[in-house]
Design a protein around this nucleic acid. Structure first.
Lengths: 208, 208
DNA sequence: GATAGTTTGTGAACTTATTCACAAGCCTGA
DNA sequence: TCAGGCTTGTGAATAAGTTCACAAACTATC
């Protein structure tokens, strides 16, 4: 299959969230044009995005909502349950562990790790904080798919090495640094400072 | 000035964070090539990004670190202090209010709002939660620059309308929906579900 | 079953973003 | 002051992403 752009995947994700809303409203078909309006894009874009994966619509009619949602879930790999571990039992880690959105979308948080001896052994929701040293060993048992990094920047490179060694192929990074990982590992970084600076830039350059 | 792509702004932000680290290490110059390596990009990209705003380097030598950081801070509009209000006094709002990164980067959280009568009036760090109904009135006094939305999806459209009416021109959105705002308002959305789905997609399609 | 009215799927055109490649400029050392 | 070694800044070339535009296919109506 040809390489799919990250921007395309983001839009697919967006379309899916709209479809789920529409499904709840009981509507049964939707046109690329309506979907485009919801997502702030164009109908051609919607059709092109979907056409990368097949033909899901009916000419003259549009897309069947439940069918298209199902297809999108399949494309996005939301059929199976992914095993997630959270690394870093600080404030962000805690907020993430409590976050309901993981489970709702089929992401099962199966472990929490930290380097700090003071935190190791503490119970946390339904989990016990474990030592990062156990990660590699645990990974072979739990088969983690995704590591969520909520570590301070200075520890993060070492943590990343352990995640890589544990064979985990996807990282959601909340540490405010750039990760360096082998090419077969996918990283998404969420960086508040960067978002804020984007807004600051926009505010400073309005009307240029 | 010509339109600057969001991807460019993100990279500038990234370069700045590297420069700050390098500055602390006491290095005084850096080449586009080193900066590129840190940021996972190419030296041509770095030079092109910077050249959109001027010529900051010395041929044969590279860039003066403190000077370039200063330029980037200026480009990103980090010279002044931006006034921020957080809307939604739930768990995410609470985490954000406690987040140190705002202040460190010159973003001053000057107000917290909610619709829920039970939460209004509660003290929160150094602030008191106020009614969203007061936002427009307060905005003229405090002159908020940025609204951070940590509201449940169903309330968000109404909140957005109030934010727009209050004259706020930048929104950092944590609600998992697409916002519709006038063209002169800048929105950045942070959506965990979307990031997770991006990873899920990548994991499902490895090796295609 | 023919006609009118939709809406998809997709090459082709266009726009935007990235990479190439090299002249121009600066530093060091002899 | 000249030569050699770097590194920038930037047009030109390439690649990537988006929009256009229209034939093909479907529904509904008469």
């Amino acid at each position: 299959m040809k390489r799919i752009a990250e921007s395309t995947v983001r839009r697919l994700s967006l379309y899916l969230s709209f479809l789920e809303g529409i499904e709840r409203q009981g509507l049964i078909t939707i046109s690329s044009d309506e979907l485009a309006r919801l997502g702030g894009t164009t109908s051609a874009q919607v059709r092109k995005d979907l056409s990368l994966f097949g033909s899901f619509g009916k000419r003259g009619l549009g897309y069947a909502v439940p069918e298209l949602s199902e297809k999108l879930r399949e494309i996005l790999g939301l059929g199976k349950e992914w095993k997630v571990c959270i690394i870093g039992a600080g404030k962000i880690g805690a907020a993430l562990a409590r976050y309901r959105g993981f489970a709702e979308r089929g992401f099962h948080v199966a472990g929490v790790y930290d380097v700090d001896k003071a935190k190791i052994g503490k119970r946390w929701e339904s989990l016990t904080v474990r030592s990062i040293a156990d990660l590699e060993k645990d990974a072979s048992k739990h088969h983690y798919d995704i590591a969520v990094l909520a570590t301070p920047p200075e520890n993060t490179p070492a943590v990343v090495r352990q995640v890589v060694r544990a064979g985990i192929k996807a990282i959601l990074n909340f540490a405010p640094i750039q990760l360096s990982v082998p090419a077969d590992i996918t990283v998404r970084t969420v960086n508040m400072a960067m978002e804020l600076e984007g807004l600051s830039f926009a505010l400073s350059n309005r009307g240029d």
